[in-house]
Design a protein around this nucleic acid. Structure first.
Length: 544
RNA sequence: GCGCCCGUAGCUCAAUCGGAUAGAGCAACUGCCUUCUAAGCAGUAGGUUUCAGGUUCAAGUCCUGACGGGCGUACCA
């Protein structure tokens, strides 16, 4: 439809004397206010200067010249300061509705990103403890962006990047070891910066159960660290699975040391004069890229800072041939990822292939008060605890319903509310309602799934059809800006459109042909709701 | 101090990469269940989009400067 409109407008512009090269890209958009029509363009206003005429006059001339196919476009009118509003022909709506039903579970897919190989890196929490609420937003955002990209044709791989070496993990091992010895009543004290969570004791108890006291004389923490890593990783994957998230690959930072790519980064930087030694450390000249200070790549202890492997990791990803590498980062990384981007540019990669989606922090609200969380100490809320309390669907939905770059207030009381206060159920309820109607219709008689759709001419029916038609746009819009909450906004409008149809137009008990036509409209609505909820990773129940 | 994000109804947030009369949910108020799920619907009220300038046919959106909040600003990840 869009390209059709662009073409007839272009023809009209040529007829009123515009030169081919004066015509700007003709933008067709959907007016916010449906009373303005189904599609609109501002091209007359854009042409005002070049044609030396006022926008309304130009718009009048264009509409006078437009020769449209009456089976597609009903009217073209000038409005406001010079908008041209189009109204679709009814026949066009009916044929679109039929095609929605035909495409079924595929409806909403587009091909704008087809052929795009995309690597989406997210979660990437080191295995030092269970996933927390903060990781939850990361995980759900990442997975949903992945699904959106897939629906627009991209080939997406989900990757989890982790580091199981280094100080953090050593501390984890020492903490488990200490708890283990305490279990055996061989009090060895507890490391100062150790992990105090109850899960550490659980792991220690498991070790006592499996090995008795045979590990009491271990020289170092290795055994304990390895056990902890395994247990915690299992736990993390289990949490992800509860949220319908399955990773395609796990990338261990350690491999970057083994294959020499870390060293290669340093060598290249040195070769270009962008790395140097000072005070026993290796520095990256980030001042060359507009930063206030240079930053350390390798500490004087010989240990690299996380930036260095991160640069090597991104180079590795690009070497694997992806067209787009998407990273999902919390706001605390906001100042550091430019180093990575600059780093890979220095290495000769195309930095436009790396894109970072930053999300702001989550505040958990309980009984009207913010719930303060500190890691390491025992008072954090794990994702599992949250899901136990409010359910998986609600958890996913709440993480998605706000724009990534605003702070998310997660109100546990509202989330626990099974009823009207909870926005998740509105969507699921609409779906369940339709399924209930569809069950009743098939109980009445065998329905072969064909109907005269032109009987659908009630105002509520027409606007519902139009809403269904804009589903693919809602998906590609949300995908292109990587903002899942836009899809939620759409689905809310759709569910609202359905409920007004539901109240205005009875299905069961009306004349048979009309009942069939309305059944098909309801079915298409359920289909779109289910497809949309599927992208959000939320269930679409048949009964509630 | 510097960098990034944010400031929209009483509260939590939308607003289709500059468009037409700034919209939802919650809270408040008024109605609606012998009819397909009331987890719902219809309606009322609620705004100088923090403030001051600027850019243009058009600014919540872009630019500059204040003010207010968040996150960074480590030889931590």
């Amino acid at each position: 439809m869009e390209s059709y409109l662009q073409e007839i407008i272009r023809q009209a512009l040529l007829e009123i004397g515009a030169e081919e090269n004066q015509i700007p890209p003709i933008k067709i958009e959907k007016p916010r206010d449906p009373s303005h029509g189904d599609a609109a363009t501002n091209v007359a206003m854009l042409m005002a200067k070049t044609l030396r005429n006022n926008p309304r006059n130009i718009a009048e001339q264009i509409t006078a010249k437009i020769r449209s196919d009456s089976s597609k476009v009903k009217t073209a009118e000038v409005a406001g300061p010079g908008f041209i509003n189009f109204r679709f022909a009814d026949d066009y709506l009916y044929s679109e509705l039929a095609s929605i039903l035909e495409k079924n579970t595929e409806y909403g897919k587009s091909s704008e990103n087809s052929g795009l190989k995309c690597l989406l890196e997210f979660v990437s929490a080191n295995p030092t403890g269970p996933l927390t609420v903060g990781h939850g937003r990361n995980a759900v955002l990442g997975d949903t962006v992945a699904r959106l990209m897939e629906w627009t044709g991209a080939e997406v791989e989900r990757e989890y990047y982790f580091n199981n070496a280094g100080r953090q993990m050593r501390m984890l091992g020492l903490s488990v070891q200490a708890r283990y010895l305490q279990e055996l009543e061989l009090d060895a004290g507890f490391p100062e910066d150790g992990y105090e969570g109850a899960y550490i004791s659980d792991i220690a108890k498991e070790l006592v159960h499996e090995h008795g006291d045979s590990l009491a004389n271990e020289a170092d923490e290795t055994v304990f660290k390895e056990k902890a890593e395994k247990v915690i990783f299992d736990d993390i994957q289990n949490s992800l699975k509860r949220m319908n998230i399955v990773m395609d690959s796990f990338f261990n930072e350690h491999t970057l040391y083994e294959d020499g790519s870390i060293q290669k980064v340093i060598d290249t930087f040195r070769g270009k004069g962008l790395a140097y030694d000072k005070d026993g450390a290796v520095w990256f000249k980030t001042t060359e890229f507009g930063k206030d200070q240079d930053t350390v790549l390798v500490k004087s202890t010989g240990e690299p800072t996380y930036r260095l492997p991160d640069i090597a990791y991104h180079a590795n990803k690009l070497d694997r041939g992806y067209d787009l590498c998407l990273d999902i980062f919390g706001a605390d990384h906001i100042d550091t990822y430019p180093d990575v981007i600059n780093g890979i540019e220095v290495l000769g990669y195309d930095k436009s292939k790396v894109e970072v989606l930053v999300y702001q922090f989550v505040t958990l609200m309980k009984d009207g008060k913010p719930f303060k969380m500190s890691t390491r100490k025992a008072n954090f809320v794990t994702l599992d605890e949250l899901m136990d309390e409010v359910g998986e669907d609600v958890t996913r939905f709440f993480f998605l319903m706000r724009s990534p770059n605003t702070h998310l207030e997660f109100d546990v009381n509202q989330a626990k509310e099974a009823g009207e206060k909870n926005p998740v159920f509105y969507l699921q309820y609409a779906h369940a309602r339709i399924q209930s109607i569809l069950r009743k219709v098939t109980e009445l008689e065998a329905f072969d799934g064909s109907a005269d759709l032109s009987l659908l001419n009630h105002e509520s029916e027409i606007s519902l059809i139009k809403k269904l038609m804009s589903f693919p746009d809602a998906i590609s819009g949300a995908a292109s800006v990587r903002e899942p909450h836009r899809l939620i906004t759409y689905l809310n409008e759709l569910a609202q459109g359905f409920t007004s149809f539901y109240h205005d137009c009875r299905i069961i008990g009306t004349e048979k042909n009309l009942m069939h036509a309305r059944t098909m409209l309801a079915e298409a609505t359920a289909r779109v709701l289910a497809n949309g909820l599927g992208i959000l990773g939320i269930s679409a129940p048949d009964k509630m």
